[in-house]
Protein backbone atom coordinates (compact mmCIF):
# COMPACT_ATOMS: atom_id res chain seq x y z
CA UNK A 1 0.00 0.00 0.00
CA UNK A 2 1.17 3.54 -0.68
CA UNK A 3 -0.80 6.06 1.33
CA UNK A 4 -2.45 6.08 4.73
CA UNK A 5 -4.95 8.82 5.51
CA UNK A 6 -6.14 9.40 9.06
CA UNK A 7 -9.72 10.51 8.43
CA UNK A 8 -11.30 13.59 9.98
CA UNK A 9 -14.75 13.17 11.51
CA UNK A 10 -16.96 14.76 14.13
CA UNK A 11 -17.51 11.59 16.13
CA UNK A 12 -20.41 10.39 13.99
CA UNK A 13 -19.89 11.51 10.42
CA UNK A 14 -16.93 11.27 8.05
CA UNK A 15 -15.73 14.73 7.08
CA UNK A 16 -16.38 15.52 3.40
CA UNK A 17 -12.71 16.54 3.20
CA UNK A 18 -11.66 12.87 3.20
CA UNK A 19 -13.00 12.29 -0.32
CA UNK A 20 -10.80 15.14 -1.55
CA UNK A 21 -7.65 13.76 0.07
CA UNK A 22 -8.32 10.34 -1.44
CA UNK A 23 -8.68 11.85 -4.91
CA UNK A 24 -5.55 13.96 -4.50
CA UNK A 25 -3.38 11.04 -3.39
CA UNK A 26 -4.75 8.07 -5.36
CA UNK A 27 -2.59 8.85 -8.44
CA UNK A 28 0.39 7.58 -6.40
CA UNK A 29 -1.12 4.20 -5.56
CA UNK A 30 -3.73 2.56 -3.40
CA UNK A 31 -4.98 4.56 -0.41
CA UNK A 32 -5.81 3.07 2.98
CA UNK A 33 -7.88 4.99 5.49
CA UNK A 34 -7.68 4.81 9.26
CA UNK A 35 -10.71 5.84 11.31
CA UNK A 36 -9.94 6.51 14.97
CA UNK A 37 -13.15 7.08 16.93
CA UNK A 38 -15.14 5.83 19.93
CA UNK A 39 -17.53 4.25 17.45
CA UNK A 40 -15.61 4.01 14.17
CA UNK A 41 -17.84 1.61 12.18
CA UNK A 42 -20.41 4.04 10.68
CA UNK A 43 -17.62 6.45 9.74
CA UNK A 44 -15.61 3.60 8.22
CA UNK A 45 -18.62 2.50 6.14
CA UNK A 46 -18.79 5.95 4.57
CA UNK A 47 -15.04 5.91 3.88
CA UNK A 48 -15.22 2.48 2.24
CA UNK A 49 -17.44 3.85 -0.54
CA UNK A 50 -14.77 6.25 -1.83
CA UNK A 51 -13.17 5.34 -5.16
CA UNK A 52 -9.46 4.64 -4.77
CA UNK A 53 -9.64 3.28 -1.23
CA UNK A 54 -8.08 -0.18 -0.73
CA UNK A 55 -8.78 -0.89 2.96
CA UNK A 56 -10.40 1.03 5.78
CA UNK A 57 -8.91 0.30 9.21
CA UNK A 58 -10.83 1.08 12.37
CA UNK A 59 -9.43 1.68 15.82
CA UNK A 60 -11.42 2.44 18.94
CA UNK A 61 -10.30 5.45 20.95
CA UNK A 62 -10.32 9.20 21.23
CA UNK A 63 -9.14 11.27 18.29
CA UNK A 64 -6.51 13.12 20.36
CA UNK A 65 -2.99 13.85 19.23
CA UNK A 66 -1.13 11.59 21.62
CA UNK A 67 -3.28 8.51 21.02
CA UNK A 68 -3.40 9.09 17.26
CA UNK A 69 0.36 9.57 17.05
CA UNK A 70 1.12 6.45 19.09
CA UNK A 71 -1.10 4.42 16.75
CA UNK A 72 0.30 5.95 13.56
CA UNK A 73 3.91 5.52 14.70
CA UNK A 74 3.54 1.77 14.50
CA UNK A 75 1.58 1.79 11.22
CA UNK A 76 3.87 4.33 9.53
CA UNK A 77 6.57 1.81 8.55
CA UNK A 78 4.23 0.35 5.93
CA UNK A 79 3.46 3.61 4.14
CA UNK A 80 5.63 6.00 2.12
CA UNK A 81 2.89 8.65 2.39
CA UNK A 82 0.92 9.56 5.53
CA UNK A 83 -1.60 12.33 5.18
CA UNK A 84 -4.32 14.24 6.95
CA UNK A 85 -6.49 17.18 6.07
CA UNK A 86 -5.04 20.56 7.17
CA UNK A 87 -7.84 20.70 9.77
CA UNK A 88 -7.43 21.46 13.46
CA UNK A 89 -6.91 17.71 14.01
CA UNK A 90 -4.40 17.37 11.17
CA UNK A 91 -2.44 20.37 12.40
CA UNK A 92 -2.43 18.96 15.92
CA UNK A 93 -1.39 15.43 14.96
CA UNK A 94 0.90 15.46 11.89
CA UNK A 95 3.78 17.63 13.22
CA UNK A 96 3.91 15.58 16.44
CA UNK A 97 4.02 12.36 14.42
CA UNK A 98 6.67 13.87 12.13
CA UNK A 99 8.96 14.64 15.04
CA UNK A 100 8.54 11.10 16.40
CA UNK A 101 9.51 9.69 12.98
CA UNK A 102 12.28 12.25 12.41
CA UNK A 103 10.63 13.49 9.20
CA UNK A 104 10.12 17.11 8.18
CA UNK A 105 6.40 17.38 7.32
CA UNK A 106 4.99 19.31 4.36
CA UNK A 107 1.78 20.97 5.48
CA UNK A 108 -1.11 22.99 4.02
CA UNK A 109 -0.35 21.57 0.57
CA UNK A 110 -2.45 23.25 -2.13
CA UNK A 111 -0.97 21.54 -5.19
CA UNK A 112 0.79 18.23 -5.80
CA UNK A 113 3.20 18.46 -8.74
CA UNK A 114 4.55 14.92 -8.44
CA UNK A 115 5.15 12.21 -5.84
CA UNK A 116 7.78 14.38 -4.12
CA UNK A 117 6.98 17.93 -5.26
CA UNK A 118 4.47 20.10 -3.46
CA UNK A 119 3.21 23.68 -3.33
CA UNK A 120 2.30 25.36 -0.06
CA UNK A 121 1.36 28.97 0.74
CA UNK A 122 3.42 31.09 3.14
CA UNK A 123 2.97 34.65 4.43
CA UNK A 124 -0.82 34.36 4.66
CA UNK A 125 -0.97 33.15 1.08
CA UNK A 126 0.89 36.15 -0.29
CA UNK A 127 3.59 33.82 -1.59
CA UNK A 128 3.65 30.21 -2.78
CA UNK A 129 6.52 27.87 -1.99
CA UNK A 130 7.35 25.05 -4.42
CA UNK A 131 9.51 22.37 -2.83
CA UNK A 132 11.02 18.92 -3.30
CA UNK A 133 10.73 16.45 -0.45
CA UNK A 134 13.16 13.57 -1.01
CA UNK A 135 12.83 12.05 2.47
CA UNK A 136 12.05 8.31 2.64
CA UNK A 137 8.55 9.07 3.86
CA UNK A 138 6.23 12.00 3.20
CA UNK A 139 4.12 13.40 6.02
CA UNK A 140 1.52 15.72 4.60
CA UNK A 141 -1.45 17.85 5.45
CA UNK A 142 -3.57 18.92 2.49
CA UNK A 143 -5.96 21.82 2.18
CA UNK A 144 -8.95 19.82 1.08
CA UNK A 145 -10.68 22.74 -0.65
CA UNK A 146 -7.85 22.84 -3.22
CA UNK A 147 -8.72 19.36 -4.53
CA UNK A 148 -11.90 17.89 -6.09
CA UNK A 149 -13.61 14.98 -4.27
CA UNK A 150 -13.26 11.30 -5.20
CA UNK A 151 -16.24 9.47 -6.67
CA UNK A 152 -18.21 6.99 -4.56
CA UNK A 153 -19.49 3.50 -5.41
CA UNK A 154 -16.56 1.56 -3.95
CA UNK A 155 -16.97 -1.09 -1.25
CA UNK A 156 -13.51 -1.39 0.29
CA UNK A 157 -13.07 -3.95 3.07
CA UNK A 158 -13.22 -2.68 6.66
CA UNK A 159 -10.71 -4.16 9.06
CA UNK A 160 -10.57 -3.48 12.81
CA UNK A 161 -7.10 -3.06 14.34
CA UNK A 162 -6.00 -2.61 17.96
CA UNK A 163 -7.60 0.03 20.20
CA UNK A 164 -5.74 3.30 20.54
CA UNK A 165 -3.95 3.85 23.84
CA UNK A 166 -4.97 6.41 26.45
CA UNK A 167 -3.67 9.90 26.04
CA UNK A 168 -2.09 11.66 29.04
CA UNK A 169 -4.03 14.80 28.15
CA UNK A 170 -7.66 13.97 28.87
CA UNK A 171 -10.64 15.44 27.07
CA UNK A 172 -12.91 16.88 29.76
CA UNK A 173 -15.33 19.05 27.77
CA UNK A 174 -16.42 19.64 24.20
CA UNK A 175 -18.52 22.48 22.91
CA UNK A 176 -19.82 21.95 19.44
CA UNK A 177 -21.32 24.91 17.60
CA UNK A 178 -24.95 23.89 17.01
CA UNK A 179 -26.57 23.90 13.59
CA UNK A 180 -26.88 21.83 10.46
CA UNK A 181 -25.16 24.14 7.99
CA UNK A 182 -22.90 22.82 5.23
CA UNK A 183 -19.26 22.21 6.20
CA UNK A 184 -17.45 25.55 5.87
CA UNK A 185 -14.17 24.04 4.61
CA UNK A 186 -15.78 22.39 1.58
CA UNK A 187 -18.96 24.46 1.04
CA UNK A 188 -19.78 25.62 -2.51
CA UNK A 189 -21.33 28.83 -1.26
CA UNK A 190 -20.22 30.80 1.79
CA UNK A 191 -21.90 33.90 3.22
CA UNK A 192 -19.69 35.72 5.71
CA UNK A 193 -20.10 38.71 7.99
CA UNK A 194 -17.63 41.15 9.50
CA UNK A 195 -17.62 43.20 12.66
CA UNK A 196 -19.98 45.66 10.95
CA UNK A 197 -22.77 43.10 11.42
CA UNK A 198 -22.74 44.52 14.94
CA UNK A 199 -24.18 41.74 17.13
CA UNK A 200 -25.07 38.08 17.39
CA UNK A 201 -28.65 39.09 16.39
CA UNK A 202 -27.19 40.79 13.33
CA UNK A 203 -25.61 37.50 12.37
CA UNK A 204 -29.10 35.98 12.24
CA UNK A 205 -29.61 38.14 9.17
CA UNK A 206 -26.42 36.69 7.65
CA UNK A 207 -27.65 33.20 8.52
CA UNK A 208 -31.04 33.91 6.96
CA UNK A 209 -29.35 34.77 3.67
CA UNK A 210 -27.12 31.72 4.11
CA UNK A 211 -30.11 29.40 4.54
CA UNK A 212 -31.73 30.80 1.42
CA UNK A 213 -28.63 29.91 -0.58
CA UNK A 214 -27.80 26.62 1.16
CA UNK A 215 -24.55 28.28 2.19
CA UNK A 216 -22.08 27.78 5.02
CA UNK A 217 -21.53 30.78 7.29
CA UNK A 218 -18.19 32.51 7.82
CA UNK A 219 -16.97 35.43 9.91
CA UNK A 220 -13.93 37.62 10.40
CA UNK A 221 -11.67 37.49 13.41
CA UNK A 222 -13.02 40.86 14.52
CA UNK A 223 -16.60 39.50 14.48
CA UNK A 224 -15.54 36.39 16.43
CA UNK A 225 -13.48 38.41 18.93
CA UNK A 226 -16.52 40.63 19.53
CA UNK A 227 -18.59 37.54 20.34
CA UNK A 228 -20.96 37.93 17.38
CA UNK A 229 -20.02 34.58 15.85
CA UNK A 230 -18.49 31.29 17.11
CA UNK A 231 -14.74 30.72 16.67
CA UNK A 232 -15.18 27.90 14.16
CA UNK A 233 -16.73 30.33 11.67
CA UNK A 234 -13.53 32.34 11.40
CA UNK A 235 -12.10 32.46 7.88
CA UNK A 236 -8.51 33.50 7.26
CA UNK A 237 -4.86 32.96 8.01
CA UNK A 238 -5.63 31.50 11.43
CA UNK A 239 -9.15 30.33 10.76
CA UNK A 240 -10.51 28.19 7.98
CA UNK A 241 -9.23 28.36 4.44
CA UNK A 242 -12.06 27.99 1.97
CA UNK A 243 -12.47 27.77 -1.80
CA UNK A 244 -16.19 28.07 -2.55
CA UNK A 245 -17.67 28.72 -5.99
CA UNK A 246 -19.22 31.87 -4.51
CA UNK A 247 -18.15 33.93 -1.49
CA UNK A 248 -20.45 36.73 -0.31
CA UNK A 249 -18.59 39.11 2.06
CA UNK A 250 -20.84 41.39 4.09
CA UNK A 251 -19.36 44.28 6.07
CA UNK A 252 -15.84 42.87 5.76
CA UNK A 253 -12.89 45.20 5.06
CA UNK A 254 -10.56 42.56 3.59
CA UNK A 255 -7.50 42.63 5.85
CA UNK A 256 -4.72 40.53 4.38
CA UNK A 257 -5.13 37.92 7.13
CA UNK A 258 -8.77 37.52 6.10
CA UNK A 259 -7.96 37.41 2.38
CA UNK A 260 -5.55 34.53 3.16
CA UNK A 261 -8.62 32.38 3.74
CA UNK A 262 -10.51 33.16 0.53
CA UNK A 263 -7.87 33.18 -2.20
CA UNK A 264 -9.32 30.01 -3.66
CA UNK A 265 -12.84 31.44 -4.01
CA UNK A 266 -13.98 31.35 -7.65
CA UNK A 267 -16.34 34.35 -7.40
CA UNK A 268 -16.51 37.02 -4.72
CA UNK A 269 -19.38 39.43 -4.09
CA UNK A 270 -18.96 42.20 -1.51
CA UNK A 271 -21.46 44.39 0.31
CA UNK A 272 -19.78 47.35 2.03
CA UNK A 273 -20.38 51.04 2.75
CA UNK A 274 -16.80 51.83 1.78
CA UNK A 275 -15.97 51.76 -1.95
CA UNK A 276 -12.27 51.81 -1.05
CA UNK A 277 -12.33 48.68 1.16
CA UNK A 278 -9.72 46.14 -0.08
CA UNK A 279 -12.38 43.44 -0.36
CA UNK A 280 -14.54 45.68 -2.54
CA UNK A 281 -11.54 46.20 -4.84
CA UNK A 282 -10.84 42.48 -4.96
CA UNK A 283 -14.43 41.33 -5.49
CA UNK A 284 -15.87 40.32 -8.85
CA UNK A 285 -18.94 42.36 -8.00
CA UNK A 286 -19.54 44.86 -5.21
CA UNK A 287 -22.60 46.69 -4.01
CA UNK A 288 -21.90 49.85 -2.03
CA UNK A 289 -24.32 50.51 0.82
CA UNK A 290 -25.56 49.64 4.29
CA UNK A 291 -25.76 45.91 4.89
CA UNK A 292 -28.81 46.32 7.16
CA UNK A 293 -30.75 47.74 4.20
CA UNK A 294 -29.22 45.61 1.46
CA UNK A 295 -29.37 42.11 2.99
CA UNK A 296 -33.15 42.07 3.68
CA UNK A 297 -33.77 43.49 0.20
CA UNK A 298 -31.47 40.85 -1.28
CA UNK A 299 -33.34 38.05 0.49
CA UNK A 300 -36.61 39.42 -0.95
CA UNK A 301 -35.04 39.77 -4.40
CA UNK A 302 -33.78 36.15 -4.37
CA UNK A 303 -37.26 35.05 -3.30
CA UNK A 304 -38.69 36.91 -6.29
CA UNK A 305 -36.20 35.18 -8.58
CA UNK A 306 -37.24 31.81 -7.11
CA UNK A 307 -33.78 31.09 -5.71
CA UNK A 308 -33.42 28.54 -2.90
CA UNK A 309 -35.90 27.69 -0.19
Amino acid sequence: MTTLILADHDGDILSPTTARLVAALSPFGPVDILVLAENPEPIARAASTLAGVATVFTSRGEMLSESAVALLETLAVHYPILAMCASSAGKDIVPRLAARLDIMPVTDVVAILGPDRFVRPIYAGNALQTLTDSQPRHLLTLRASAFPPAATGNAAPIQPIEDAGQSVARLIATHRTPGDRPDLATARIVVAGGVAVGSAEGFQLIEMLGRKLGAAIGATRAAVDAGYAPNDWQVGQTGKVIAPDLYIAIGISGALQHLAGIQGAKRIAAINTDPEAPLVKLADVALIGDLFEIVPQLIAELEKLGVGS
Binding site: I103, Q129, L131, I268, A283, D284, V285, E301, V307
Partner: peptide, 26 residues
Amino acid sequence: RLRIENISPPPERVAGRTLASVAELG
Protein backbone atom coordinates in the same frame (compact mmCIF):
# COMPACT_ATOMS: atom_id res chain seq x y z
CA ARG B 1 15.47 18.24 4.72
CA LEU B 2 13.34 19.97 2.10
CA ARG B 3 14.63 21.72 -1.00
CA ILE B 4 12.81 24.97 -1.77
CA GLU B 5 12.73 25.30 -5.56
CA ASN B 6 11.18 28.72 -5.73
CA ILE B 7 8.85 31.24 -4.15
CA SER B 8 6.22 32.80 -6.41
CA PRO B 9 3.46 35.36 -5.97
CA PRO B 10 -0.14 34.04 -5.95
CA PRO B 11 -2.16 34.42 -9.16
CA GLU B 12 -3.82 37.83 -9.48
CA ARG B 13 -7.59 38.17 -9.63
CA VAL B 14 -9.19 39.98 -12.52
CA ALA B 15 -10.66 43.38 -11.66
CA GLY B 16 -14.34 43.39 -10.76
CA ARG B 17 -17.19 45.86 -11.19
CA THR B 18 -19.47 47.88 -8.96
CA LEU B 19 -23.17 47.08 -9.18
CA ALA B 20 -25.89 49.70 -9.18
CA SER B 21 -28.71 47.88 -7.38
CA VAL B 22 -29.81 44.98 -5.20
CA ALA B 23 -31.58 43.61 -8.29
CA GLU B 24 -28.23 43.36 -10.10
CA LEU B 25 -26.67 41.59 -7.11
CA GLY B 26 -29.63 39.18 -6.95
